[in-house]
Write a protein that binds this DNA or RNA. Structure first.
Lengths: 234, 234
DNA sequence: CCCCGGAATTGACCTGGATCAATTTTGCGC
DNA sequence: GCGCAAAATTGATCCAGGTCAATTCCGGGG
């Protein structure tokens, strides 16, 4: 629990309070759903181990992958406004989560101000990420950006940022990035030829992080290299 | 103030409190900036009259329009997590806004629980909208979805949902929808031929809302027609 | 009223990535 | 270990939407 993203910066006793309202949902096996679009929205879910994919099915039956959630990340935030889940969440591997009942969480934020800011910060970041993803970029930029994002999230978990084990198949990456699986495959091949990565199935080693950054910079939320930002203010 | 989206559902005295922390920023003329990417994030901005566009400039100097904000809508939410604005906000027409200093707003949410839920709801909705926009759809679907979204937002303001006066040029719509301006132009022409809309420059009349819905349904946040949702739960 | 410059439209052509079509590869149940 | 279905790769072809290039259409200033 202590390393879920939400409690960052909370005091020990506040974390205690948070822990008192969550309840762990035992292992969900790959392919099982945590919640579904249209379900009554009751809780946010923090991934403890494993990985989730969220997706929608549009009116023509096409699947759209909205995102992936690895350990330490939160899913379900988009259900708040309508009291109804806006997407489906399915486990990509055996996954365990903490359910954070939303009404109790909201209550708790009144007692624990740090929790409230943290939730707002998480949502704000998610919003930024989603807006970035909605912008126009070449297939190459999008895949590079995706790998960089995963790398950073792995690093935050204490894992080697250059050794990625993708929890999802190409098809899901493709849908998430609005590309065809064939395009993903060809891009991996090209990145490999150019010495940027070594990719074999779901094992991806990043060989040239800088080059990847140059390609995916336009999509990198955490990129601080932009000279228009004044570093002295940081 | 009373018809800004944020206070919806607040008691009179709570609204009083909210009003006490906001300060109005006199008319911003078309083309003037309200805030810029990289600026220290201090406040959220609620549009009173007029319209804003938010956008980023990527590492290659390309502009990406993130969204439009008409009267009653909030801008700046994506700046919360980094204490720095993540985008630029510019007036599309003469515009007046209320600045909601964020630290005081956060404080106030502790006293006014309804305000806290409302902020979460607004962010959650924004997140859903952005995620929808990030999905893959044809140019036709995206423009139809955009017009529907604008229509609904106009309706919420009490305006005729079929008589839209677009505050933005084609170029901005194009960038927002990841299309070329020429494509927007051709789509308007096609929609016109098919009797869906009558569009002349920035005046757009929606002639066949149902047909537009059939095209843009996949992107319509408020669409309740999906049979997979159980209406009895609503 | 006329002129100017940006916005919009329209047409011709091009291309990045999709689609279609085979093969491989490989994880997994038996 | 074998068989098989799903995942991934690779090649050939196609097309939605982009790009380039003229016009045309206005709105505003003098």
């Amino acid at each position: 629990m202590r390393d879920l993203c939400l409690p960052l910066g909370l005091e020990a006793d506040d974390m205690q309070k948070l822990e008192s309202i969550v309840h762990t949902r035992g292992p969900i096996r790959a392919g099982e759903h945590l919640f579904r679009e249209g379900d009554s929205f009751q809780a946010l879910y923090a991934v403890k181990t494993g990985a989730l994919k969220t997706y929608t099915i549009d009116s023509q039956g096409r699947e759209h992958v909205l995102g992936f959630h690895i350990a330490g990340e939160l899913a379900g935030l988009d259900g708040i406004y309508s009291s109804r889940n806006r997407c489906n969440a399915v486990a990509l591997q055996t996954t365990s989560v903490c359910a954070l009942p939303f009404s109790r969480l909201e209550q708790l934020t009144r007692e624990v101000p740090g929790l409230q800011s943290q939730i707002l910060r998480v949502m704000s970041r998610e919003l930024s990420a989603s807006a970035q993803l909605a912008t126009e970029h070449s297939a190459e930029e999008r895949l590079a950006g995706f790998l960089l994002s995963l790398s950073r999230r792995y690093a935050r978990r204490g894992l080697d940022p250059c050794m990625l084990t993708l929890p999802m198949p190409r098809r899901d990456i493709a849908s998430h990035l609005r590309l065809a699986t064939e395009t993903i495959s060809r891009l991996f091949a090209r990145f490999q030829d150019e010495g940027l990565v070594a990719a074999r199935r779901r094992e991806v080693r990043i060989l040239d992080m800088d080059a990847l950054r140059r390609i995916g910079a336009a999509l990198d939320l955490d990129d601080d290299s932009d000279p228009r930002h004044n570093p002295s203010l940081r």
